[in-house]
Design a protein around this nucleic acid. Structure first.
Lengths: 273, 273
DNA sequence: CTGTAGGCGAACAGCCGACAA
DNA sequence: TTGTCGGCTGTTCGCCTACAG
């Protein structure tokens, strides 16, 4: 059994025909400063029971108690992390990560040198701002009011010889979709606004007052655009496929099977806890 | 182990705080004439592998081959069907059924008399019509054109002494939500139309041309309203919780565990195959 | 500095019959 | 019989400034 095919964080596409890797700095910005991802090639500890309880919380269903015991499954698995890919839900833009884990035998844990990941918090990009949407921002009556410092820091400078100064902004979201906005500096007192294009964006993303938007100006002079939804206690899962019992069993059984055969298994990590 | 607590089709609420039982005739009308549900208290055959492949099709992901074998799990399980409940997805109105199954031991299969369900196709309601939406129906330019025979059969009769004849219709969907429509008979040549209220409905349900709507006039003189979406090859599952491998394992392991311990397990049946 | 509201022109929604398939 | 269209309002959208917190 070979262990480390590559220590490099390989972020290629996976699972036939899916997206290329998402923009990493935008993903981390949407996930927030407290969320960190271990690197591929390192060693991580996986807690099947804890993960199962997390999933239980999102499905908001009781476990009926029909879950079999997996006596061979230890409460924590030392694994090698083979692969980490960043994803975002197509519908909600919710960020999550997919990891390929391989349990290590006690012998391998001794033999193999693999750095233990400590979960360094990801550094947030420097040229970015995040604003929580007001009632006016999400009303159909007008546009989006950009805080002054934010506009000056992350938007390209306006040509103030025009009256009023205005430009078109193009920003890409996590799915690489382009959104165009008219950025104008006007009013009395003067202010930065996003007008045309703003309502298309916030209605497409179904943003409401209390949600946040986030603009990044990166080193490649690209404007990136992400969202963070307010903590609504929703997350009612699509229950129409698998019972919550089967989901819990699946989680535990997959880990147990991988531990027993030292083979890889896949988990999804949802940073919102 | 007691087997038949009750032979009656018990359709109460389940899983704390969820909906009461849905309207059965509307559920079957939305599912279509070819879909039948076995009754609670009867004996059914469950095919874990076949079910797993169905789920695989909806998740549109390849099985990586890391699925463990369950040698103790026979390809088909003779089960007693303890409970059947009808459901509809809150977001899409997609209908599905939840079943509680209990595998029978060979001995029980001999001892217990339970009628074998043959899957009688459900009879469709008599006073109903189903129309596939045209481009005009789903345009913002106008309302919904009701086929003449359909309107005369399932809508309350209009008062033709009025000019033009018109009334307000109130119809309930699978979630018991009320929708109001203005039903008018006008134009040259005369026709039945749903005007005010129609666009609210079809945009809320996100219906497009090619989808179908379905009205039922039942014995209690209630107007019921359902939808059947066109077969869009979508059904990309929310992958952000459980890997497809874990889902398959969960399905098989839950059945295997139930078979080994003769305990109940829960499956979801999605009629769209 | 920025959230909300009034003013107002333009765009769209949505009701109508005409026409034709 | 019914799908689509042009004609025609009434409503909403959305850009602007004024004002206040």
């Amino acid at each position: 059994m070979k262990l480390s095919t590559s220590g490099l964080p390989q972020q290629g596409q996976h699972e036939g025909g899916e997206k290329k890797c998402l923009n990493s700095e935008l993903w981390h910005a949407c996930a927030g400063p407290l969320v960190s991802l271990p690197s591929a090639g390192t060693r991580v500890v996986y807690f099947p029971q804890g993960h199962s309880e997390q999933v239980a919380a999102t499905t908001s269903r009781e476990v009926d108690g029909h879950i079999p015991n997996y006596p061979s499954l230890p409460p924590q698995l030392i694994c090698q992390l083979h692969n980490v890919t960043m994803h975002a839900d197509v519908e909600t833009d919710e960020v999550y990560a997919q990891m390929t884990l391989q349990p290590l035998t006690p012998q391998e844990q001794k033999d193999t040198f693999l750095p233990m990941e400590l979960g360094v918090p990801s550094k947030q990009p420097s040229n970015y701002f995040c604003k929580t949407l007001t009632a006016s921002d999400t009303s159909t009556h007008g546009g989006f009011s950009v805080p002054r410092r934010a506009a000056e820091k992350v938007f390209p400078p306006l040509d103030f010889s025009q009256q009023p100064p205005a430009q078109e902004l193009i920003a890409r979201d996590l799915h690489d979709v382009e959104w165009k906005f008219r950025h104008i500096f006007r009013g009395q007192p003067k202010r930065h606004l996003l007008t045309t294009g703003w309502s298309v964006f916030f209605s497409a993303k179904r943003l409401v007052a209390g949600d946040s938007v986030l603009f990044i100006w990166n080193e490649k002079n690209q404007l990136l655009l992400g969202i963070r939804r307010a903590n609504r206690p929703q997350t009612v899962m699509p229950s129409s496929v698998l019972s919550s019992d089967s989901m819990h069993i699946g989680l535990l059984a997959a880990a147990a099977h991988a531990a027993a055969t030292n083979s890889c298994f896949t988990v999804f990590y949802n940073p919102r806890l």
